[in-house]
Computed example of a mutant assay.
Amino acid sequence: MNLPLPGTTDDRVVGVLLGSACGDALGVPYEFGPRLAEDRVPEMAGGGLGPYEPGEYSDDTQMAVCIARALRDHGDPVSAEALRRTADAFLRWANDGASDIGNQTAWVMRRSGHALGRPEVAKVMERAAADRFADGVPSAGNGSLMRTGPLALAYPDDPRGLAVAADRYSRLTHGDPLASEACVLWCEGIRYAVAHADLSGVRAGLDLLPRDRRGVWAAWLDEAEERPPHAFSPNGFVVRALQAAWSAVVRGDFTTALRAAVRAGDDTDTVAAIAGALLGARWGASAIPREYLDAVHGWPGYRADGLSELALGVAGRRAGKR
């Protein structure tokens, strides 16, 4: 397995996608189960809600891969072509590769499936999500937050550009502004951690939100730092998912924090995938246990090496050079 040198920026670039995938696979066996005892060590045992093999990741990483491949191949993430490619990839995945899919995302996929392959597919998808929210259907699930980590790799020096992209990619399936705001905060946390090996970017991201939303989110982050991850269950709601992930992230190194995210219970694979992206950005792929890297795999055939190359491709980098 070829990974970048420990402590390099590339180590942290690769850590974003690998950290998320490993968190996803670690959480799969416990999805929608009860809180785990503090002395229990989560394992990549497979099973869960589907016929997952040990180490196999689920829809969280599958959708992140769809985004990452589009970003790798298009210079402007918010171009019509990049968004079209992503929307098409989501639909093809939903039809052929999805091992699991959330209710909100599944509904949007059904409503926009007729536009597969058409230039307007991203607009159709976004409109369906917006209409669902406008109709009063709760639309602030964690399904956009779980997948947006790769966007941070495409904007290494442009937090405001990243905020625009995080909002656009969230709105493809989630019309509630809460989902977009969560993606903005988390993506900026990932971007900053990759650049500086520091977690303070999540709070710095508050300045990227509308002025009247900053205090609300600051209070939610405060609460997450004061309470354990399991206090934010059920965590299918995007705010609770972010709080559970942040509560875990600030409590230790990569492995300690990732296991804490899984122990919180409920939507374990998603919370751990969200936490894993930020933890990987902070600590790097070199901090991920070797047994996780050896086991992790999933649709459409990636293992750790392939995910590493994909992350570096999004960032436009070559392993070990920086």
Rank of each mutant, 00 (worst) to 15 (best):
I67L: 13
A70D: 03
L83G: 01
C66G: 09
R85C: 14
R92Q: 12
H114S: 13
R84D: 08
R110V: 08
R111S: 09
G113E: 14
S79E: 05
A89C: 07
T105M: 10
V78N: 13
G55N: 09
H74Y: 11
F90Q: 03
A70R: 08
R84E: 11
T105Q: 00
A68P: 03
A82I: 06
H74Q: 07
C66T: 11
G75E: 15
G97W: 04
W107K: 12
A87Y: 00
P54A: 11
D96F: 14
G55H: 09
E81L: 11
W93T: 04
H74M: 06
D59H: 07
P77S: 10
V65I: 15
A87K: 03
A68R: 00
P77F: 07
Q62S: 15
G97V: 01
N95M: 15
A98V: 06
W93R: 08
D76Q: 13
L91C: 05
R110M: 11
T86A: 09
G113N: 13
S79D: 03
R72E: 14
A68K: 05
P54V: 11
R111A: 13
E81K: 09
R72M: 10
S99H: 10
S79C: 05
I101F: 00
A98W: 08
S112H: 06
F90I: 05
D88L: 03
R72C: 12
D76S: 12
A89S: 14
G102A: 06
D88M: 05
L83Y: 06
S79G: 14
M109K: 00
G55Q: 07
W93K: 05
Q62A: 15
H114K: 11
E53M: 09
P54R: 10
P77T: 07
Y57F: 14
G102V: 07
W93L: 05
I101E: 09
P54S: 11
S99T: 15
